[in-house]
Each structure stands twice: as structure tokens, then as C-alpha cells.
Design a binder for these strands. Structure first.
Lengths: 245, 245
DNA sequence: TTTGCAAACGTCATATTTACGTTTATTTGT
DNA sequence: ACAAATAAACGTAAATATGACGTTTGCAAA
């Protein structure tokens, strides 16, 4: 018995990180030097997302978690499966054909795409064995495969989700300023927000907790630090009558 | 060369339909009588989503569209890929083992799940060759495989999306009353909405067009009919400063 | 001490939401 | 022809949120 469909299953991970200093939403990418084909290795010079085949006994979520850990050493980061990419023309390398029992099969590669949210400073890019590098999401280098498209769709999903859920705090350090939050929204959404109105709106939220601390080492008036309380957020009454169409 | 992973790729379709008469959000299901194993056919008596293997030269979207057309005859319905399900324990039937070149492989089934939105009256369930049947989303029958979970996750995604985008009109007839829209929101979200406030809010939208028509054949005061203008909606200025966390 | 500058606070008109009460138009029963 | 029943449709007032600005404050560096 031959399966009707023979294919590779992989996960690809869009790792988003925010740098509060440069105020830039970044994506973590790795360099692709060599691409093996059926007959020879082809030299390529572009960047790709981190990803890998799904192991035999792994769930899709476990696979994505493993790939992130392998790249960054991190576990327990915010993770979101957002789309599967598996069109027949996804990969057309020679290696994507296989022969089984004298029959030729086109080896389609289906990838389940995830994105992760983390703080840039959590990743030690200097000593990274994959030479991983952060790129601003609006200044991406040349990307291999369809990874440009995957990043764009991850970004779109992130835009939508950050308007409805408090996932923005996954990208910020535990202690942040009001302006950090504003800058991050502006980076993600590509918009400008009035600081005075945004500040009022955010400070009025019960789950934004002012700390007895201020910024240190800044050359201007140091800003008040806040933290986000997930507990208070969850306990709060959330109007579900928010029909914003 | 043996692929590192051998698996089935399929799509499963959660078909949502709304019945304005019973005010019920429904899911279209088909009966599963027989399940083939490697050695014999096993009698089962439950319902499943409609789904099928992805063909060799098909995109994932095309595959889902084909499956919907096969079941309902419909094309051009609102379609949304929302999640891939592919955990190794998804199916443990005997038929999910195959032997290739004297090696045993576990044939995992990865399914890309879609949901469709349509009007119940578009489907002729009386003459449906699959004996497809509508079930209220809150009174589902016993379901095969992990299809209960797939429906629940589709429903969750629909809840989120209908708050942010005007997809609710995909579930309503072209001409609807304000109360139809309210009832549908209540069905999807499982909440109660104040009719007077909802009515005012909706009527004030430029893209809700009053028609020169009223309901016919009702035994009370017949309601004003409206239509939704996708064009006006798209042309409208949509504030993107809608941070509702 | 002064100055530069971002942080932080304040104001006001308008729009939206919430929580209700009231009127109107139509069908059906007498 | 009229009354009753009922869902549709309209109304109101207080509270809250938003948008568009102007002003003050506090710290570090010059």
C-alpha cells in the first residue's frame, strides 16, 4: 500500500523580538549558505526562518517549541500557530522527488508556521551557533523559499491579535514605561498614536501596575516603570459586546 | 531515499450555517457508517466533518474549496483556514501503518482545517448524496476522530473574527432585519445584547443600507429589511486605533 | 544655576455606551 | 369594525470614552 500523498512535514518559526532601545520590531533569521539538491550542493546566500522536520512522535506544538529551544535556548515563550503553507509549488528542488517501489513521488513540503514573541535581550546573538541575527521587520534581507510571505502573514496576524489581546507585553521587559508600550504598538501597527491620550487610556487599566521604580541611566527625566498583571487581566470583567465592525 | 516523514495530508471543513427561523448557528455534518481498517471494515455510528485528501497538484485552499463543492455544490463561499491538526496520536487505525521497502512507517494524518460561512437555505439537505445534516453548534451529535475539537476551535476563531470584521453577513440572507443580525451575534457569541442599543448602533453604520422592503408573511408588525454593502465598508475610513485590551 | 527635553498632567468639546422607558404598526381574534 | 397582542421602532438622560490639543514638571547635563 502506497500512501496517496507522500510529503515532508515541518514547522517554521517566525521569532519576533522588540528592542526598546532602537524601538524596532525585529525578526530573528539565520543565514542559509548551502542548499543540498539530489546531485550537488548549491551555494545560496540569503536568510531563512528557523524550522525543522516534525519528528515521528512529536505534536506540532512540541516541534515548534523544540525548534525555538534549539535556536535560542528559550522555552515558555508566547507561541501561536497561525497558518499552514503547503502548496504543491512550494519547493521544486530535485531532492523533492523520491522513488518508492519504482514509482516516482513528488515530495511536497507542508510547513506549519508559528510565531513566537520574546524580548530581544533574551537571545545572545553574539554566541549563537546558528549565527542568528535580528532584522527589523520592515527592513528584511533577501529571504529563501517563501519565508518572506510567511513573515508577512505572521505580522498581519500579530497586528490583529495585539488589538484584541494583551500579547504586547510578551514583547516587553517585565518593567516597562508607558512610552515603551506606545512605541511598540506603533512599531507593530505602523501608525502614530497621540501620547497624551494613549497614556491616559493605559494608566486607567487596572492591570497596568505602577511600580515604586523609575528608569535609571537615562539622560532626561526618568520615566515611571509599570508592570502588567496577567492575573488581574484574567479576573477582570471583559465586555464581550465589543462589536467593532 | 526514504522521506523522513510519511503522512497523509487532508483538509477538513467546518461548514457553518445560520437558520434565521430557528435562530440557530448550525454545523453541517455527514454520517460515518463504515471505517476501513487494514484488515476489515468496522461499523461506526457517528458524525464527521466533510474532508478529503489533498490531491497531488492542488493548493490547500483549492482542496478545501473542492471538498465544499463536492458536499454542497457551492463555490465562492467565505473560507478561512484556521488551524492544522497533526498530532501523532490523531489516528491510530491499523490502516495508518504502511510498509515501504520492508520498513514500517506510521502514517500520521495531518489535516488543515477550514471553516466556511454560508446560508443554511443554500444547501439542499433533502437530496444530499452524503446525507449531510445541520446540527446546532451547541447540540452536536457524537463525533468521530477529533472533529469535536476541530469544531470547537473553529467556533472560537469565528467568535474572535466576527467582532472585528463584518463576516457575520456571510451567514445571513442578502436582505435581513436588524434583529436577524442581533440574533446571529447572540448565537455565535452566546451572549445577550440590548436590542435598542444594538439597533441604534447598527443603523448608524453607513454600510447598512435600508431597503424599500419589509418582511412578508409574518404574523406581527413586519420588520424593515436591510442589506450590507461590502463596497461602502471597504471604502470607509477604518480607525486602526482600536486597542481594546 | 540654567537649560533642554521627555515625562506627566490638564481641558474641553464631541461621540459613544449603558440602562432604561415609550410609541407605533401590523396581524389576529371577536 | 374594533380591541388585544406583540414585535418593531423610537426616545432620553447619565456616565464614560475619545480626539485634539495646551501646560507643567522633574531630572541630567552643560
Amino acid at each position: 500500500m502506497i500512501p496517496n500523498k507522500i510529503l515532508n512535514l515541518s514547522v517554521d518559526c517566525v521569532v519576533f523580538g522588540y528592542d526598546t532601545n532602537t524601538k524596532s520590531l525585529n525578526v530573528l533569521l539565520i543565514k542559509r549558505y548551502l542548499e543540498a539538491s539530489a546531485t550537488k550542493e548549491i551555494l545560496v546566500d540569503d536568510y531563512v526562518l528557523t524550522g525543522y522536520h516534525v519528528y515521528e512522535d512529536e505534536t506540532l506544538d512540541e516541534s515548534a517549541t523544540r525548534v525555538l529551544k534549539e535556536l535560542t535556548g528559550l522555552t515558555n515563550q508566547y507561541k501561536q500557530q497561525f497558518k499552514a503553507f503547503g502548496n504543491p509549488d512550494r519547493l521544486s528542488n530535485k531532492k523533492d522527488l523520491i522513488w518508492i517501489q519504482n514509482q516516482e513521488f513528488n515530495l511536497r513540503t507542508v510547513t506549519i508556521a508559528y510565531y513566537f514573541l520574546l524580548k530581544t535581550e533574551c537571545v545572545d546573538v553574539k554566541n549563537n551557533k546558528y549565527k542568528a541575527k535580528w532584522f527589523p521587520v520592515r527592513e528584511l534581507p533577501e529571504l529563501g523559499f517563501d519565508h518572506q510571505q510567511i513573515i508577512e502573514e505572521a505580522h498581519e496576524d500579530l497586528k490583529t491579535k495585539c488589538l484584541a489581546e494583551p500579547i504586547i507585553f510578551e514583547l516587553l521587559p517585565d518593567k516597562f514605561t508607558i512610552n515603551d508600550v506606545q512605541d511598540l504598538y506603533e512599531s507593530i501597527l505602523g501608525i502614530e498614536i497621540d501620547n497624551r491620550n494613549f497614556r491616559r487610556k493605559l494608566i486607567n487599566k487596572k492591570y497596568i501596575i505602577p511600580l515604586d521604580e523609575k528608569q535609571v541611566g537615562v539622560s532626561k527625566k526618568p520615566a515611571q516603570l509599570y508592570m502588567f498583571s496577567k492575573d488581574i487581566y484574567k479576573k477582570m470583567y471583559h465586555k464581550n459586546y465589543l462589536i467593532n465592525i
